[in-house]
Design a binder for these strands. Structure first.
Lengths: 190, 190
DNA sequence: TCACTTCCTGAACACTTTGTTCAGCAAAAT
DNA sequence: ATTTTGCTGAACAAAGTGTTCAGGAAGTGA
């Protein structure tokens, strides 16, 4: 691909990321992004149709990167019999997020937060959907999914909002303790 | 108060509510509100400084109404010893929400949803903050609060988003079952 | 009924932001 | 060296925001 295109694109991404650290997305104007990126107006619009599309694409790239396939639990894993493995997987996920702290934190305000939530939710549903139905609580599986995934995303957002001061291990520990409590002994113990 | 003012104000509220049923708040223009309310431009701006202020005030009135004081648990109540009372209170809250279904549903998209969440969260923290610290899980009290309140609001949002098809009783049942599981016997049984 | 106070009206205005267009220039590709 | 592709920046139309103001309508009180 043309180096010029790459250059403008990253200039735009960097500019937006920098601006997002100080302001909500909806309060940032295209002109500001252009100025910060130091490019021509028409250049911006030849890359992105609108400001919203820019955000979407940028987040998309980032999330794809953060929630990369390597984090997918393999279908064969039986977490209901082995909580340690689930814990390790979730913790690994949080480490990934921590690695992208700068980028993700700047996104967690305003409209962009919703993109994160949607993307995260979709990922978790894919990755853990089956697993969740094995958790033994007497509620509809839709409700269970909503509860488990929702509370996890909430927890992660809360963690990020607080500046990621706790370690991923602490967070996962606390989360699982709230969620699994009373359920620890369901595994058949090896 | 001058009847004219009242009339304009409700005309504006009604107009916005109607528009919110079809579009996100951020996509609605002041002009549309004005047209829908059938008032003059300067009239709008003599009532509200900006579109955002209108939303805030409207939501504020509504939430104050929905989460009215009558729903405050009395300090003396000991929910840790009596889950039935807590359940009844939460169910009552959902009934209140259901009563305002039309208004609340129209608000649950875009920016206005965040106002709801903030308001709801503040209310719950006030109403149930003490109570939560009595729940027996070995995590920090901040985490516990985040988890309990967050998952409850999530559940309510999920319920509203789905069109409030389940009864308040069902929702509270499922919520408490997910939350309290393994903890039912902590009360000292009268 | 007669003031008079308050509110509503709607047009005009300045300003900001958006998204498009286009001619000219610069940098890649072949 | 020639062609293709991308960047520039000014100019433009369109849409929205928030203000102002003169005049009219509707409430209020004597």
């Amino acid at each position: 691909m043309d180096r010029r295109q790459q250059k403008t694109r990253t200039a735009i991404y960097d500019a937006l990321t920098k601006l997002l650290r100080k302001r909500r997305f909806e309060d940032i104007t295209v002109q500001e992004i252009i100025d910060e990126a130091n490019i021509g107006r028409s250049t911006f619009y030849s890359h992105f149709e609108t400001k919203d599309q820019l955000l979407e694409q940028m987040c998309d790239e980032m999330f794809t990167h953060v929630f990369s396939e390597s984090l997918m639990p393999e279908k064969s894993h039986d977490f209901s019999a082995n909580h340690e493995e689930l814990r390790a997987l979730l913790e690994h996920l949080l480490w990934h997020i921590k690695d992208h702290e700068d980028n993700i934190s700047s996104i967690m305000y305003g409209e962009s937060e919703k993109l994160f939530t949607r993307y995260f939710s979709g990922y978790l549903e894919n990755a853990f959907g089956d697993l969740i139905s094995h958790i033994d609580i007497d509620v509809s599986s839709e409700f269970k999914k909503q509860f488990v995934i929702g509370s996890f995303i909430n927890t992660v957002k809360w963690w990020i909002g607080g500046g990621l001061v706790q370690s991923p291990g602490e967070i996962i520990d606390a989360y699982l303790r709230c969620l699994i409590r009373g359920n620890q002994n369901h595994g058949t113990g090896k």
